[in-house]
Design a protein around this nucleic acid. Structure first.
Lengths: 142, 142
DNA sequence: GGGAAATTCACCACTTTTCCCCACTCTTCA
DNA sequence: TGAAGAGTGGGGAAAAGTGGTGAATTTCCC
């Protein structure tokens, strides 16, 4: 399971090294457009589960169609080179606004890839709301 | 169970020795961003319970995503070296404002790691208000 | 269909960080 | 007072991350 965050850099070819700790669980993986302008990376098995859920959504609703298209049509299988890097295609890079510095975050069942600036901005925004978040801890029984 | 407080020091590499008394129960542990600008340390088993709840939350809701990112991406699994030290990643050090001197406190089910200055300041503040706080504890049945 | 250009991919080399081990000091307990 | 355990600091080896070059394949134009 994936936990923690790492600062890495993307080179001009769109190559990003994923943290060594995560690679064992990611021999086969899928990247796709995520929410909040980041990329989601799933191990193949997790991805299959998610894809089935998405496919089962009611096709009649406009917003679920949009969501399915985002995640399914945006997806791409990735492989690692000898150095543990993956290549992100141009359309995913521009979707997430990736420049040189990126953040790779572990969210238990998936990874997220963020542009560093966007990540910091998002974090700041969250800190403002951290009190509300703390209150919600109770509801989860934490 | 963890009780008591200890003054330790963090070296330039971000290594902190956790009290020898606590290590037996912490072979595998997780550090997270805590409340009041300190770090929480949980035994891995305890933390896993909570993490699974978080991972099960719906990805489609913005506030649960934010919540997972705070708790999961903000966490880090830690292991001990032969000397009983753990390495704290940069983002946790800066979150808690850790400099050289730190305080490790046992809070029964978890440990807390504080910057020493922040700890002293917090204590002073609490002493001033201890009567008021005690009054409010009635409501909780203490 | 052939050739040139461009893109992709695999490999190589360098730098930085991490991790592991050793040594020393201080405290505690017998 | 001596020995053992705990905490602190540093150095060296290994791994991880980063950047670049060259070969191969594909694409496009003639």
């Amino acid at each position: 399971m994936f936990v923690g965050q790492y600062n890495h850099s993307m080179d001009a070819k769109g190559r990003v090294a994923l943290p060594a700790k995560f690679r064992a669980e990611l021999k086969k993986a899928v990247v796709t457009k995520g929410l909040d302008n980041c990329l989601f990376v799933y191990p193949k098995k997790e991805w299959d589960k998610m894809a089935e859920k998405l496919a089962a959504l009611p096709v009649a609703k406009a917003n679920t169609r949009a969501f399915s298209r985002l995640m399914l049509a945006g997806a791409m299988e990735i492989e690692f080179d000898k150095q543990g890097r993956v290549i992100l295609p141009e359309y995913l890079r521009s979707f997430a606004g990736l420049k040189k510095d990126v953040v790779v975050a572990g969210l238990y069942t998936r990874l997220e890839i963020w542009d560093q600036e966007a990540w910091l901005k998002y974090q700041k925004e969250m800190e403002k709301n951290s009190n509300d978040i703390a209150e919600n801890l109770n509801e989860l029984g934490v």
